[in-house]
């Protein structure tokens, strides 16, 4: 789907998600105060069990959410640029719309 509209790649997003989830898993582990230093092998197994994953549909939907965010940002910034009579979206236009945009997403 979305053959003509470019969007984000689910696999790239999944990589990024997994990196974040690895980080949080590590933080949780540290916060729980792992008793002493476990052997690396044991740590790996427990981490693998705990790490979050995502299913394919969820990733596609997340890509769409990011696409909507960007599309909406461009749309709103374009309106501001238009109102100022400029034909190029500059940083200042983005600055104007960013606070409300972040509240809306």
């Amino acid at each position: 789907m979305q053959a003509e509209a470019p969007t984000f790649r689910p696999d790239v997003l999944h990589e990024l998600f997994k990196l974040v989830w690895e980080e949080t898993a590590k933080e949780v582990e540290e916060a729980e105060g792992a008793p002493g230093e476990e052997t690396p092998a044991a740590a790996d197994i427990s981490k693998k069990k705990r790490n979050t994953t995502a299913n394919a549909h969820a990733l596609r939907l997340s890509c769409e959410l990011l696409r909507l965010l960007i599309a909406e940002a461009v749309g709103r910034a374009a309106l501001v640029a238009e109102a100022e009579g400029q034909d190029c979206i500059e940083g200042s236009h983005l600055e104007r719309i960013l606070p409300q945009l972040l509240l809306d997403f």
Binding site: L16, W21, S62, L69, A73, A81, C88, I89, G91, L94
Partner: peptide
């Protein structure tokens, strides 16, 4: 309208940050 390169970079940064918090 055209989009200045600065804006594209800013949007890319925003997307990455947003994706991380989304994760």
């Amino acid at each position: 309208v055209e989009v200045s390169p600065v804006v594209v970079s800013a949007l890319a940064e925003l997307t990455s940050k947003y994706a991380e918090s989304l994760a």
